[in-house]
């Protein structure tokens, strides 16, 4: 049985107690998306400001548990300054890490994952969440919401 230390790593608690990039951005020019976790009622709003294809600012509003808040905080620092394509890759790698199914794959797939994981930096601290399947939705809430924001920003009529 996984222990709490797998879940509540120090870096996670740090981002929870001192969340980065809290606040709002004026819409427009920024784009905002709100996501809900139907399990617990948490909601988060992700503000994304782009210039050309680069994400120049990300802000987060809403409420949630330590896992959803710290995951959002870490995400904001990880994607700020990246191009939209680079950010999408981070999203994809993170969501791969959060997939309970991915964890069961062996061989090449697992190796590819571990290479990609190296790029995630501090976010790897959230890997322990996979051992608590009910909490995966907490960790991925801000990422799914951010991905929706990217889709909207990338839409031709934006």
């Amino acid at each position: 049985m996984p222990g709490l230390e797998d879940l509540y790593r120090e870096i996670i608690l740090d981002h929870y107690r001192n969340p980065r990039n809290r606040g709002e951005l004026p819409v427009p020019p920024a784009h905002a998306e709100t996501g809900f976790n139907p399990l617990c009622g948490d909601e988060i709003t992700v503000y994304v400001q782009t210039e050309g294809d680069r994400i120049v600012d990300v802000k987060l509003a809403g409420q949630g548990c330590s896992i959803s808040q710290s995951s959002a905080s870490m995400m904001s620092t990880a994607v700020k300054g990246k191009t939209i394509d680079e950010a999408r890759r981070v999203v994809s790698t993170f969501k791969g890490m959060m997939s309970v199914h991915e964890q069961r794959l062996g061989g090449d797939e697992a190796e590819r994952s571990s290479d990609a994981l190296a790029e995630l930096g501090d976010l790897v601290a959230l890997q322990g969440v996979v051992k608590f399947p009910v909490r995966i939705k907490c960790a991925t809430l801000s990422w799914n919401t951010f991905a929706q924001a990217l889709d909207a920003v990338g839409a031709p009529n934006h």
Partner: peptide
């Protein structure tokens, strides 16, 4: 403390409560 986090720590003590809406 968020109810999810409470419930998670309580579980470590064998205590089952509901956290959510």
């Amino acid at each position: 403390i968020h109810p999810h986090d409470l419930s998670q720590v309580l579980d470590e003590h064998g205590v089952c409560v509901r956290a959510g809406h």
